[in-house]
């Protein structure tokens, strides 16, 4: 089980994954079909259908109010759709009847737009909490950290460049460091699907580059969905792009493909 200490963390991850679930390249992991939801008469999502394979890196773009965040809310169980279905994994399990924590345990991790880490706790504690371990109250109460968990935290910290900050309160970190810590927490969860909301917001160009690398590497072994405004960042991700508009899919394909689409141009540049 233990990977050699000098191996890249994600490679070790790969190994673990290989043991646990046989890799089925590009199999459908998440299937959203015909989903609609409205708030007080306003249709935030309108007959949205989307499917994500595993592994895959996908960018979701769209103007404000296109329903990007609501889409994430629906997948993570925060919002219940009025109609449609959301199915997950090989056994096509419906996510609609599961609670947020069940969905998270099923393997969907989410990073929020605004970095949300536990500011009054240390970086180590934040990472330890996110580590993939039994989540029940009594499991947690009687939890004794095994040595590989301690090692794993160190690896993750190195991966996100916070190894020197492990003992610090995460509230003291800079904005970019908090973003990375959150990504680190996501990786610690070891999800099959990563939903990332505007990861590059408020970052310096160097930090953006680092983030892009992190995401691309993560996407080698799992599905990663990135919601983003910034075209430049999306271009750097170099992946399949879905354009949302008024709660449904407007176009899908490579970035070059969708940016040539007249409807996309209309939506982005105005009519």
């Amino acid at each position: 089980m233990m990977a050699p200490a000098d191996a890249a963390p994600l490679a070790r991850d790969e190994a673990r994954r290989g043991e646990e679930r046989p890799r089925r390249p590009r199999s459908t992991l998440l299937e959203v079909s015909g989903v609609s939801v409205s708030f007080d008469g306003f249709r935030a999502i309108n007959n949205l259908s989307l499917s994500i394979g595993e592994p895959e890196l996908r960018a979701v773009i769209g103007p404000n109010g296109a329903g990007k965040t609501t889409f994430m809310d629906i997948v993570t169980g925060k919002t219940r759709p009025d109609e449609g279905s959301v199915t997950w994994g090989e056994r096509s399990q419906s996510l609609l009847r599961m609670s947020e924590s069940e969905i998270a345990r099923a393997g969907i991790g989410r990073k929020f737009q605004k970095p949300t880490v536990f500011e009054s706790q240390s970086v180590r504690e934040n990472l330890a909490m996110a580590l993939r371990n039994p989540r029940g109250p009594f499991d947690v109460l009687f939890y004794r950290p095994p040595t590989d968990d301690t090692g794993r935290i160190l690896e993750l910290a190195e991966e996100i460049g916070l190894a020197a900050q492990l003992g610090r309160l995460s509230g003291e970190l800079s904005h970019g460091q908090k973003q990375w810590l959150e990504i680190g927490m996501l990786l610690a969860q070891d999800p099959r699907l990563l939903l990332v909301d505007e990861p590059a917001a408020g970052m310096t160009p160097a930090e953006r580059e680092h983030t892009t690398d992190l995401l691309k590497r993560a996407a080698e072994s799992r599905a990663v969905v990135v919601v983003e405004h910034d075209m430049e960042f999306v271009r750097r991700l170099d992946c399949r792009v879905t354009v949302l508009h008024e709660g449904s899919v407007l176009a899908e394909g490579s970035l070059d493909h969708v940016t040539r689409d007249q409807r996309v141009i209309d939506v982005y540049l105005g009519r």
Binding site: K78, S99, S101, E102, A104, F118, M129, A130, P145
Partner: peptide, 25 residues
């Protein structure tokens, strides 16, 4: 770790939930 989780619940319940912890429990 228990303390970590319950303080996490105090500070940001929803975040703990998205980490997969059954907050209600």
């Amino acid at each position: 770790k228990m303390g970590s989780v319950i303080r996490g619940i105090r500070d940001n319940e929803a975040r703990v939930r998205f980490l997969g912890y059954p907050v209600e429990g």
